[in-house]
Amino acid sequence: MTRRLSRETMIKWAPLLVLIALVIFFTALNPTFFSLRNFARIAIAAAPALMVAVGVTFIIVMGSIDLSMEGTVSLTAVSFAFIFAQLGGSLAGLGWIAIPLVLVIGGVIGLLNGLVHVKLKIPSFMASLAMGFVGTGAAILLTGGDIVKVSDATFRGLLTVRWLGFPLMVYVAAFFLFVGWFIQTHTTLGRNFYAVGGGEDLAHASGLNVTRVRVTGFALAGVFYAIAAMLVVARIGQAESVTGANFMFVSITSVVVGGVALWGGIGGVWNALVGVLIVNVIDNGMVVIGLPDFLQDGVLGLLVILAVVLSTDRKMVSFVK
Protein backbone atom coordinates (compact mmCIF):
# COMPACT_ATOMS: atom_id res chain seq x y z
CA MET A 1 0.00 0.00 0.00
CA THR A 2 2.68 2.49 0.97
CA ARG A 3 4.73 1.56 -2.04
CA ARG A 4 1.76 2.20 -4.28
CA LEU A 5 1.13 5.51 -2.63
CA SER A 6 4.67 6.64 -3.11
CA ARG A 7 4.48 5.56 -6.73
CA GLU A 8 1.35 7.62 -7.19
CA THR A 9 2.89 10.62 -5.52
CA MET A 10 5.99 10.26 -7.62
CA ILE A 11 4.03 10.13 -10.84
CA LYS A 12 2.00 13.11 -9.77
CA TRP A 13 4.96 15.35 -9.11
CA ALA A 14 7.47 13.97 -11.59
CA PRO A 15 6.48 16.27 -14.49
CA LEU A 16 6.94 19.39 -12.36
CA LEU A 17 10.30 18.16 -11.11
CA VAL A 18 11.36 17.47 -14.68
CA LEU A 19 10.36 21.01 -15.64
CA ILE A 20 12.36 22.53 -12.78
CA ALA A 21 15.33 20.31 -13.57
CA LEU A 22 15.22 21.38 -17.20
CA VAL A 23 15.16 25.06 -16.26
CA ILE A 24 18.13 24.59 -13.94
CA PHE A 25 19.96 22.54 -16.56
CA PHE A 26 19.57 25.10 -19.34
CA THR A 27 20.33 28.00 -17.02
CA ALA A 28 23.53 26.32 -15.95
CA LEU A 29 24.62 25.90 -19.54
CA ASN A 30 23.61 29.40 -20.56
CA PRO A 31 22.54 31.94 -17.93
CA THR A 32 20.67 34.05 -20.51
CA PHE A 33 18.07 31.30 -20.52
CA PHE A 34 16.91 32.52 -17.14
CA SER A 35 15.73 35.98 -18.20
CA LEU A 36 12.39 37.68 -18.51
CA ARG A 37 12.98 38.23 -22.20
CA ASN A 38 13.56 34.54 -22.79
CA PHE A 39 10.65 33.50 -20.60
CA ALA A 40 8.42 35.80 -22.64
CA ARG A 41 9.69 34.08 -25.76
CA ILE A 42 8.83 30.68 -24.30
CA ALA A 43 5.41 31.94 -23.21
CA ILE A 44 4.59 33.29 -26.67
CA ALA A 45 5.52 30.00 -28.28
CA ALA A 46 3.62 28.05 -25.65
CA ALA A 47 0.37 30.05 -25.57
CA PRO A 48 -1.41 28.54 -28.62
CA ALA A 49 -0.04 25.07 -27.88
CA LEU A 50 -1.37 25.39 -24.34
CA MET A 51 -4.88 26.06 -25.63
CA VAL A 52 -4.75 22.99 -27.87
CA ALA A 53 -3.36 20.95 -25.01
CA VAL A 54 -6.09 22.05 -22.61
CA GLY A 55 -8.70 21.08 -25.20
CA VAL A 56 -7.27 17.66 -25.80
CA THR A 57 -6.76 17.11 -22.07
CA PHE A 58 -10.51 16.89 -21.59
CA ILE A 59 -10.70 14.25 -24.29
CA ILE A 60 -7.83 12.20 -22.91
CA VAL A 61 -9.28 12.40 -19.41
CA MET A 62 -12.37 10.74 -20.89
CA GLY A 63 -10.16 7.92 -22.12
CA SER A 64 -10.57 8.92 -25.77
CA ILE A 65 -8.12 10.75 -27.97
CA ASP A 66 -8.50 13.61 -30.39
CA LEU A 67 -6.14 13.85 -33.34
CA SER A 68 -8.17 16.44 -35.25
CA MET A 69 -6.43 19.53 -33.85
CA GLU A 70 -4.29 20.25 -36.91
CA GLY A 71 -7.29 20.40 -39.19
CA THR A 72 -9.46 22.25 -36.70
CA VAL A 73 -6.82 24.88 -35.94
CA SER A 74 -6.14 25.43 -39.65
CA LEU A 75 -9.80 25.68 -40.53
CA THR A 76 -10.70 28.00 -37.66
CA ALA A 77 -7.63 30.14 -38.31
CA VAL A 78 -8.55 30.53 -41.97
CA SER A 79 -12.21 31.12 -41.12
CA PHE A 80 -11.19 33.79 -38.66
CA ALA A 81 -8.99 35.55 -41.19
CA PHE A 82 -11.78 35.57 -43.78
CA ILE A 83 -14.58 36.63 -41.46
CA PHE A 84 -12.37 39.24 -39.88
CA ALA A 85 -11.60 40.69 -43.31
CA GLN A 86 -15.27 40.56 -44.33
CA LEU A 87 -16.27 42.50 -41.24
CA GLY A 88 -13.92 45.33 -42.02
CA GLY A 89 -10.62 43.86 -40.91
CA SER A 90 -10.35 45.80 -37.70
CA LEU A 91 -10.94 44.84 -34.12
CA ALA A 92 -11.88 48.44 -33.45
CA GLY A 93 -14.73 48.15 -35.96
CA LEU A 94 -17.07 45.19 -36.40
CA GLY A 95 -14.17 42.78 -36.63
CA TRP A 96 -14.54 41.65 -33.02
CA ILE A 97 -17.69 39.72 -34.03
CA ALA A 98 -15.37 37.28 -35.79
CA ILE A 99 -14.06 36.10 -32.42
CA PRO A 100 -17.30 34.65 -31.01
CA LEU A 101 -18.23 33.35 -34.46
CA VAL A 102 -15.00 31.44 -34.76
CA LEU A 103 -15.41 30.02 -31.27
CA VAL A 104 -18.79 28.69 -32.40
CA ILE A 105 -17.26 27.28 -35.58
CA GLY A 106 -14.63 25.51 -33.50
CA GLY A 107 -17.36 24.11 -31.28
CA VAL A 108 -19.35 22.88 -34.26
CA ILE A 109 -16.31 21.16 -35.79
CA GLY A 110 -15.67 19.48 -32.45
CA LEU A 111 -19.31 18.49 -32.20
CA LEU A 112 -19.17 16.85 -35.64
CA ASN A 113 -16.01 15.12 -34.61
CA GLY A 114 -17.67 13.76 -31.50
CA LEU A 115 -20.78 12.69 -33.39
CA VAL A 116 -18.77 10.79 -35.99
CA HIS A 117 -16.92 9.04 -33.17
CA VAL A 118 -19.94 8.23 -31.02
CA LYS A 119 -22.76 7.76 -33.51
CA LEU A 120 -20.81 5.78 -36.10
CA LYS A 121 -19.01 3.93 -33.30
CA ILE A 122 -15.58 4.57 -34.75
CA PRO A 123 -12.64 4.61 -32.31
CA SER A 124 -11.86 8.21 -31.52
CA PHE A 125 -8.28 8.20 -32.74
CA MET A 126 -9.38 7.25 -36.22
CA ALA A 127 -12.57 9.30 -36.30
CA SER A 128 -10.69 12.40 -35.20
CA LEU A 129 -7.74 11.73 -37.49
CA ALA A 130 -10.13 11.53 -40.44
CA MET A 131 -11.99 14.63 -39.32
CA GLY A 132 -8.65 16.38 -39.00
CA PHE A 133 -7.92 15.54 -42.63
CA VAL A 134 -11.34 16.89 -43.56
CA GLY A 135 -10.62 20.09 -41.61
CA THR A 136 -7.30 20.63 -43.36
CA GLY A 137 -9.02 19.84 -46.64
CA ALA A 138 -11.67 22.44 -45.96
CA ALA A 139 -8.98 24.98 -45.11
CA ILE A 140 -7.22 24.24 -48.41
CA LEU A 141 -10.54 24.62 -50.16
CA LEU A 142 -11.20 28.01 -48.57
CA THR A 143 -7.78 29.45 -49.25
CA GLY A 144 -6.98 27.66 -52.47
CA GLY A 145 -3.55 27.19 -50.93
CA ASP A 146 -2.95 30.90 -50.44
CA ILE A 147 -1.90 32.79 -47.34
CA VAL A 148 -4.42 35.19 -45.79
CA LYS A 149 -2.86 38.15 -44.02
CA VAL A 150 -4.30 39.67 -40.85
CA SER A 151 -2.51 42.91 -40.17
CA ASP A 152 -4.96 44.85 -38.00
CA ALA A 153 -2.77 46.63 -35.46
CA THR A 154 -5.33 46.29 -32.68
CA PHE A 155 -5.60 42.54 -33.13
CA ARG A 156 -1.86 42.14 -33.46
CA GLY A 157 -1.72 44.01 -30.16
CA LEU A 158 -2.13 40.57 -28.63
CA LEU A 159 1.50 40.10 -29.56
CA THR A 160 2.87 43.62 -29.58
CA VAL A 161 1.36 45.11 -26.45
CA ARG A 162 3.24 43.96 -23.42
CA TRP A 163 2.38 44.09 -19.79
CA LEU A 164 5.01 43.21 -17.20
CA GLY A 165 7.17 41.99 -20.03
CA PHE A 166 4.68 39.48 -21.41
CA PRO A 167 2.46 40.17 -24.42
CA LEU A 168 -1.32 40.19 -24.02
CA MET A 169 -1.78 36.80 -25.68
CA VAL A 170 -0.02 35.15 -22.77
CA TYR A 171 -2.63 36.63 -20.44
CA VAL A 172 -5.41 35.54 -22.75
CA ALA A 173 -4.04 32.00 -22.68
CA ALA A 174 -3.72 32.18 -18.91
CA PHE A 175 -7.31 33.32 -18.65
CA PHE A 176 -8.59 30.42 -20.72
CA LEU A 177 -6.38 28.03 -18.80
CA PHE A 178 -8.23 29.27 -15.76
CA VAL A 179 -11.54 28.73 -17.56
CA GLY A 180 -10.43 25.19 -18.34
CA TRP A 181 -9.55 24.61 -14.71
CA PHE A 182 -12.93 25.98 -13.68
CA ILE A 183 -14.77 23.64 -16.04
CA GLN A 184 -12.67 20.76 -14.80
CA THR A 185 -13.31 21.31 -11.12
CA HIS A 186 -16.53 23.24 -10.78
CA THR A 187 -18.94 21.97 -13.38
CA THR A 188 -20.86 18.74 -13.71
CA LEU A 189 -19.53 18.34 -17.24
CA GLY A 190 -15.94 18.54 -16.08
CA ARG A 191 -16.48 15.99 -13.33
CA ASN A 192 -18.35 13.73 -15.73
CA PHE A 193 -15.25 13.61 -17.95
CA TYR A 194 -13.48 12.00 -15.01
CA ALA A 195 -16.36 9.62 -14.38
CA VAL A 196 -16.33 8.44 -18.00
CA GLY A 197 -12.55 8.12 -17.98
CA GLY A 198 -12.51 6.32 -14.65
CA GLY A 199 -15.05 3.69 -15.64
CA GLU A 200 -17.32 4.16 -18.59
CA ASP A 201 -19.51 1.13 -17.86
CA LEU A 202 -19.89 2.09 -14.24
CA ALA A 203 -20.75 5.67 -15.15
CA HIS A 204 -23.33 4.36 -17.57
CA ALA A 205 -24.76 2.02 -14.94
CA SER A 206 -25.08 4.98 -12.59
CA GLY A 207 -27.36 6.63 -15.08
CA LEU A 208 -24.90 8.99 -16.73
CA ASN A 209 -25.56 9.86 -20.37
CA VAL A 210 -22.08 8.89 -21.53
CA THR A 211 -22.77 9.66 -25.18
CA ARG A 212 -23.71 13.23 -24.41
CA VAL A 213 -20.69 13.74 -22.18
CA ARG A 214 -18.38 12.47 -24.93
CA VAL A 215 -19.88 14.61 -27.68
CA THR A 216 -19.88 17.70 -25.47
CA GLY A 217 -16.26 17.03 -24.61
CA PHE A 218 -15.25 17.03 -28.25
CA ALA A 219 -17.21 20.25 -28.86
CA LEU A 220 -15.48 21.89 -25.91
CA ALA A 221 -12.11 20.81 -27.26
CA GLY A 222 -13.08 22.38 -30.59
CA VAL A 223 -13.69 25.72 -28.88
CA PHE A 224 -10.23 25.59 -27.30
CA TYR A 225 -8.68 24.79 -30.67
CA ALA A 226 -10.40 27.86 -32.07
CA ILE A 227 -8.84 29.99 -29.33
CA ALA A 228 -5.47 28.48 -30.18
CA ALA A 229 -6.06 29.28 -33.85
CA MET A 230 -6.71 32.96 -33.12
CA LEU A 231 -3.63 33.21 -30.94
CA VAL A 232 -1.53 31.73 -33.73
CA VAL A 233 -2.97 34.22 -36.19
CA ALA A 234 -2.20 37.05 -33.78
CA ARG A 235 1.33 35.77 -33.37
CA ILE A 236 2.28 35.30 -37.01
CA GLY A 237 -0.16 37.74 -38.62
CA GLN A 238 -1.49 35.30 -41.18
CA ALA A 239 -3.57 32.17 -41.66
CA GLU A 240 -3.20 29.33 -44.13
CA SER A 241 -4.04 25.66 -44.50
CA VAL A 242 -0.88 24.60 -42.68
CA THR A 243 -1.36 26.93 -39.70
CA GLY A 244 -2.25 23.94 -37.57
CA ALA A 245 0.67 21.79 -38.72
CA ASN A 246 2.60 20.00 -35.98
CA PHE A 247 0.07 20.84 -33.27
CA MET A 248 -1.02 17.21 -33.08
CA PHE A 249 2.36 15.89 -32.18
CA VAL A 250 3.31 18.72 -29.86
CA SER A 251 0.04 18.85 -27.96
CA ILE A 252 -0.37 15.11 -27.46
CA THR A 253 3.25 14.91 -26.39
CA SER A 254 2.77 17.79 -23.96
CA VAL A 255 -0.33 16.36 -22.37
CA VAL A 256 1.15 12.91 -21.95
CA VAL A 257 4.51 14.21 -20.70
CA GLY A 258 2.61 16.46 -18.32
CA GLY A 259 1.16 13.39 -16.65
CA VAL A 260 -2.32 12.94 -18.10
CA ALA A 261 -2.88 9.19 -18.35
CA LEU A 262 -3.74 7.96 -21.82
CA TRP A 263 -6.31 5.49 -20.52
CA GLY A 264 -8.29 8.25 -18.92
CA GLY A 265 -9.43 9.51 -15.57
CA ILE A 266 -6.13 10.95 -14.33
CA GLY A 267 -4.60 14.40 -14.72
CA GLY A 268 -6.01 17.73 -15.76
CA VAL A 269 -5.27 21.18 -17.13
CA TRP A 270 -2.36 21.81 -14.76
CA ASN A 271 -0.70 18.73 -16.16
CA ALA A 272 -1.30 20.14 -19.62
CA LEU A 273 0.36 23.41 -18.57
CA VAL A 274 3.40 21.66 -17.12
CA GLY A 275 3.62 19.44 -20.19
CA VAL A 276 3.44 22.34 -22.62
CA LEU A 277 6.10 24.18 -20.63
CA ILE A 278 8.37 21.13 -20.60
CA VAL A 279 8.06 20.79 -24.36
CA ASN A 280 8.63 24.48 -24.99
CA VAL A 281 11.49 24.77 -22.52
CA ILE A 282 13.24 21.89 -24.26
CA ASP A 283 12.55 23.52 -27.58
CA ASN A 284 13.80 26.92 -26.48
CA GLY A 285 16.63 25.56 -24.37
CA MET A 286 18.06 23.60 -27.25
CA VAL A 287 18.33 26.79 -29.25
CA VAL A 288 19.73 28.76 -26.34
CA ILE A 289 22.51 26.27 -25.69
CA GLY A 290 23.19 26.09 -29.42
CA LEU A 291 21.79 22.70 -30.38
CA PRO A 292 19.95 22.39 -33.68
CA ASP A 293 16.24 22.79 -32.97
CA PHE A 294 15.20 20.07 -35.43
CA LEU A 295 16.25 17.43 -32.94
CA GLN A 296 13.19 18.49 -30.99
CA ASP A 297 10.77 16.06 -32.61
CA GLY A 298 13.02 13.11 -32.01
CA VAL A 299 13.65 14.04 -28.39
CA LEU A 300 9.93 14.59 -27.84
CA GLY A 301 9.12 11.28 -29.51
CA LEU A 302 11.38 9.44 -27.11
CA LEU A 303 10.10 11.50 -24.20
CA VAL A 304 6.48 10.65 -24.88
CA ILE A 305 7.24 6.92 -24.97
CA LEU A 306 9.17 7.26 -21.75
CA ALA A 307 6.33 9.18 -20.13
CA VAL A 308 3.72 6.61 -21.11
CA VAL A 309 5.90 3.76 -19.97
CA LEU A 310 6.67 5.35 -16.61
CA SER A 311 3.07 6.23 -15.88
CA THR A 312 1.53 2.94 -16.96
CA ASP A 313 0.72 0.48 -14.26
CA ARG A 314 1.68 -2.65 -16.17
CA LYS A 315 -0.56 -4.89 -14.14
CA MET A 316 -3.62 -2.95 -15.20
CA VAL A 317 -3.15 -3.39 -18.91
CA SER A 318 -4.10 -6.77 -20.31
CA PHE A 319 -3.32 -6.17 -23.93
CA VAL A 320 -2.88 -3.20 -26.16
CA LYS A 321 -3.56 -2.89 -29.85
Binding site: Y194, G198, G199, L202, A205, S206, G265
Partner: peptide, 9 residues
Protein backbone atom coordinates in the same frame (compact mmCIF):
# COMPACT_ATOMS: atom_id res chain seq x y z
CA UNK B 1 -20.14 -7.59 -5.97
CA UNK B 2 -17.39 -6.06 -8.02
CA UNK B 3 -16.69 -2.50 -7.12
CA UNK B 4 -18.97 -0.29 -9.10
CA UNK B 5 -17.45 2.86 -7.69
CA UNK B 6 -15.28 4.85 -10.03
CA UNK B 7 -11.86 4.81 -8.39
CA UNK B 8 -10.58 8.21 -9.50
CA UNK B 9 -13.61 10.14 -8.26
Amino acid sequence: QEQSLIPNL
